[in-house]
Design a protein around this nucleic acid. Structure first.
Length: 427
RNA sequence: GGAGAGGUGGCAGAGUGGUCGAAUGCGCUCGACUUGAAAUCGAGUGUACUGCAAAGUACCGUGGGUUCGAAUCCCACCCUCUCCGCCA
């Protein structure tokens, strides 16, 4: 959520920054108008309240000091009190209604892109930052796409997953399941080593949590909802991890907080019916190791860079070629101010595919989730900055391994760093 | 699912119609005493909004209601805990 005060005081800059995302997408003028009205009413209302409080106190005092509770003096005060009450009865609902409208408009506004975020209209204008590793280009199409080699090896099973659940689900079988587990353990071990504290959070989360991290209200069709309860299947561990501290005032000395978690993630993938219908790339349920940071605003840029490196370290350890892309303003996620995607090389289609997305939300989520901190000896509170990134999407990592480590003889080598976990060298 | 208890500041906990944004204790900050520390003593210590400011307003789980006035009374809802049942 954007800071209303800032919208009011720097409206033209803010309008301009929002236009970098989408030239016609956002108009803050209605918010400014409502805000103006709301403050006018608030001034009136609080002056009336002040007089009302004064009357209340006066009546109490007079009765205590011996005035006749049924006398004319008290009756006159009561009458004034009643008239104030009647006026407040009109103003209060108006003010409340304005506040609700403002709040709901604010919740629909995306974060401001960082000044450094490249301006562009869509993903074609994203900027490549760096590449790592050598692209594996198969000769004569000998490399099978991961879903084919996976089925051939008997470790991926899609048909029965449809029977058990629906399309876009998978059964991992035998070594496939073991490989997934090995990847999860490897990723967690690596991030714990890098200083993150592991959390195993609830994967059902409530509406407040999803609003706090900005999946709601705009993207409700993206998550699975439990119809009988105010609970949703978490689309990413970002939600439970960031919301751990919702509504809290932390001590500055507690920062930075670095958490990692493995969770299954659930996404409805509404609106992507034709896309990536085969394989592990786009499933309704997938595993992910997530990194979440809550940091002091002064350090958020450095923390962001470090977070990207933490995610990259996994790909490097697995020796998977990848590139780092900085998203342009038109492709930036709703809550992000700045975002780097890691894209892994998939030789079967000779493309790079997103395997991690590392975002700096600055105070956008913190303001929604009301996560603040206090500096010792200083007055007041500030919002923390929140950051998160995948470290990594496990299913997509498996896909990348099945393709990049595929040998001409139809077997798949296990990356060296995973061998201690799997206790084997080939699939 | 059944029965009961309860939701008040960082924590514990008092408060059953006005002097309550809220006692007291703990914690924390500053100061005194001390070679230093502990103990002791003194002072301070919630958040947010409006306003240039003075100041004002709001907040005792949430939402309504009664009243000149509600943490306190009434109604509805939510949540937590305990016991029983069921269950990995």
């Amino acid at each position: 959520m954007l800071n209303l005060k800032l919208i009011r005081e720097q409206s033209s800059q803010i309008q301009e920054l929002l236009q970098r995302r989408n030239p016609e997408g956002y108009d803050i003028q209605p918010i400014l108008d409502l805000d103006q009205k709301q403050r006018e009413i608030e001034t009136q209302r609080s002056q009336l309240s002040a007089r009302g409080n004064e009357i209340g106190k006066t009546i109490g005092q007079k009765i205590r000091t011996g005035s006749d509770p049924k006398g004319s003096e008290i009756a006159a005060l009561k009458e004034e009190g009643n008239s104030i009450k009647a006026q407040l009865g009109e103003l209060e609902p108006q003010e409340k209604d304005l506040k609700t409208q403002i709040e709901s408009l604010l919740l629909q506004l995306p974060n401001l892109p960082d000044e450094s975020t490249p301006v562009g209209k869509d993903e074609t204008e994203n900027v490549e930052v760096r590449r790592w590793g050598e692209e594996y280009i198969p000769e004569n199409d000998k490399i099978l796409p991961h879903w084919e080699i996976g089925e051939k090896l008997g470790i991926l099973e899609f048909k029965r997953a449809v029977k058990v659940a629906q399309s876009r689900f998978v059964n991992l079988i035998g070594a496939g399941a073991a490989l997934e587990r090995a990847l999860i353990n490897f990723m967690l071990d690596k991030q714990i080593e890098a200083g993150y504290t592991e959390i195993m959070p609830p994967v059902l989360v409530n509406t407040d949590s999803l609003t706090g991290t900005s999946q709601l209200p705009k993207f409700s069709e993206e998550s699975f909802k439990c119809s009988d309860d105010d609970l949703w299947l978490t689309p990413t561990a970002e939600v439970p991890l960031t919301n751990l501290y919702r509504g809290e005032i932390l001590e500055a000395s507690q920062l930075p907080i670095h958490h990692c978690a493995y969770t299954p993630c659930f996404r409805r993938e509404a609106g992507s019916y034709g896309k990536d219908t085969r394989g592990l790339i786009r499933l309704h349920q997938f595993n992910k190791v997530e990194l979440v940071k809550l940091v002091h605003p002064d350090n958020s840029e450095a923390e962001h860079q470090a977070l990207v490196k933490n995610a990259e370290a996994i790909l490097q350890a697995l020796k998977l070629p990848y590139r780092v892309i900085e998203l342009c303003t038109g492709d930036l996620g709703f809550g992000a101010a700045k975002c780097y995607d890691l894209e892994v090389w998939l030789p079967s289609s000779e493309t790079y595919r997103e395997i991690s997305s590392c975002s700096n939300f600055r105070d956008f989520q913190a303001r929604r989730a009301n996560i603040r901190f206090k500096e010792a000896g200083k007055k007041g509170t500030k919002y923390v900055h929140t950051l998160n990134g995948s470290g990594l999407a496990v299913g997509r990592t498996m896909a990348a391994i099945l393709e990049n480590y595929q040998l001409p003889n139809g077997t798949v080598q296990i990356p060296e760093v995973l061998q201690p976990y799997l206790k084997r060298e080939f699939l």
